[in-house]
Nucleic acid binder design. Structure first.
Lengths: 148, 148
DNA sequence: ATATTTGCAAAGGATTTGCACACAC
DNA sequence: GTGTGTGCAAATCCTTTGCAAATAT
């Protein structure tokens, strides 16, 4: 199997093995690409960079691999404002929501716990933070209270 | 023009007028549907419910209307794990990211400012919060420091 | 009266799937 | 050796767009 200088490679191999998944060059290459990149990459960016390592990689493999890696927690899904088209009524400008994963109930909450934290985080990261997106998932009291 | 019992209708009309947009039955109906619903609705759910009010509404109108309403802040975009396929490397299980909207630089941060807040929010909303999604947008120090 | 908005249908992209072959275990 | 994973191409799905007719102002 090919070998790539990915800091998380050994870890990744173990995580994959734990889940009964194979450590394929493609999976390690995609992880490597994401790990090395300091920028957001589109699916095609990821494909191109992966092809620099494994020229025959197909687009479908990228999709499948990203799903696998996200499912086992080695990467995470990132949301962009214009990349995701689902909407909910919002009673205030923050528009944060809590979603019940059992019944889909949705509740928006006005106050934003981050306001204070932002400044702190701005200083530490060097980012001037303009906007934020927060969403909570859980079970509403009916679903949590009633049986499964 | 049709009239719907939407608490925010008058407000919506004003906001639309302010922006030079027309208060069409479709826009008010979609807003009404989202406002009345306590649950997350898919695009097709929104179409179906809107058709209960205005039977001839087309799907394209739903998309256009949701965009307009989101742009003027009357509704907000909601992200679901499987509804948005963009990924980034994640160095910890939280996987929160800050994204620079100018150069696309992405930085993940380990600590989660919500940990403490969760319990508090759980009590107030009645939701048992299992998971959360947080993402920040801004400008990295190079982009913020350098000219535009 | 006029410019915006809508509905329909067609176009366009993005993502997924089927299947034979390759490969990690 | 076996079953999972991959590559290719086709199929599918979601979203956007063009245009003529309708309509809010």
């Amino acid at each position: 199997m090919a070998h790539f200088p990915c800091a998380k490679e050994i870890d990744a191999k173990e995580v994959l093995k734990e889940k009964g998944l194979k450590s394929t060059p493609q999976r390690l290459a995609v992880l490597h690409v994401l790990h090395e990149s300091t920028k957001y990459l589109s699916i095609n960016n990821i494909l191109d960079k992966t092809k620099e390592i494994l020229p025959n990689t197909g687009l479908a493999t990228i999709y499948r691999t990203l799903d696998v890696l996200a499912d086992i927690g080695l990467i995470s899904r990132v949301h962009f404002e214009d990349g995701c088209h689902t909407y909910a009524y919002s009673s205030d400008s923050h528009g944060h929501h809590i979603v019940c994963t059992k019944c889909n109930k949705i509740m928006d909450f006005a106050e934003c716990p981050f306001e204070d934290y932002m400044e702190n985080l701005s200083k530490r990261t060097g980012f001037k933070i303009n906007n934020h997106f927060l969403q909570l998932f859980g079970e509403c009291n009916e679903c949590a209270g009633n049986a499964n």
